[in-house]
């Protein structure tokens, strides 16, 4: 390779723009096969993201798996407390033959459950367990939905925005009256100071 000076770094870096992607072939195909399932399609920094309807998720995923997206890269849960449907689950899929990636997002409210994709990709087992544990998103049909990173009996979902960073009282503390939170001296009160030699200005 010829060694040349690298091009001058531009003075202002430009954050890429998100571009609507309705004419992307993959989006067109999904819209044809599954009417009204694709709610939005965006390309940002070279990645295609489609928001889809939760009810048709398993059909879409099976179709994508048979068309080559055999590798489920990641399953990301996000909590938007102000949105109408606060929980978003993003599925990142990869096609091993063409090295294409696609991100599918579904949005659900607190009481709705997302259909599980463990029947389609076995990877989803633990990834869904993690989303359930840390965010409280229910997955319908998961064979073994229990907590994975926190312990059984933990009350709360740590990655929710209303869960405080410093943690909550999990009921795991013992001997709270003797050893309060945060450590500290073991004695209940400080020992009396040694008697002063000449009281001088103090009262009798």
């Amino acid at each position: 390779m010829a060694e040349q000076k690298p091009p001058a770094v531009p003075a202002k870096r430009v954050q890429p723009e998100a571009v609507e992607a309705w004419d992307h072939p993959r989006v067109v195909e999904l819209k044809e096969k599954f009417a009204e399932s694709v709610l939005s399609a965006v390309i940002y920094a070279g990645e295609l993201t489609c928001t889809v309807d939760a009810g048709q998720l398993t059909d879409l995923c099976s179709h994508l798996k048979t068309s080559g997206f055999t590798y489920l890269v990641d399953l990301i849960g996000i909590h938007y407390p102000e949105a109408e449907r606060p929980f978003t689950v993003a599925y990142l899929l990869h096609n091993m033959n063409t090295q294409d990636r696609i991100r599918l997002k579904v949005e659900v409210s607190e009481s709705e459950a997302v259909p599980t994709v463990t029947g389609i990709w076995k990877t989803a087992g633990w990834l869904e367990r993690e989303a359930y544990d840390l965010l409280g998103i229910q997955f319908d049909g998961h064979p073994d939905l229990r907590r994975i990173l926190t312990w059984e009996g933990f009350n709360g979902h740590p990655l929710r925005k209303d869960f405080p960073l410093r943690g909550i009282d999990t009921g795991a503390a013992v001997y709270e009256d003797r050893y309060p939170d945060g450590g500290g001296p073991v004695m209940k009160e400080a020992p009396a100071p040694p008697a002063a030699k000449s009281p001088a200005k103090e009262g009798d």
């Binding site: 000076k5 954050q15 940002y44």
Partner: peptide, 25 residues
């Protein structure tokens, strides 16, 4: 192959990206 040159991109001080999401591996 290593060339001479800068070691860091210029102008990256306060990082406040607009709303977006990416994945990089």
């Amino acid at each position: 192959l290593i060339p001479e040159g800068d070691i860091i991109a210029k102008g990256v001080k306060i990082i406040k990206p607009k709303p977006a999401e990416v994945y990089f591996s």
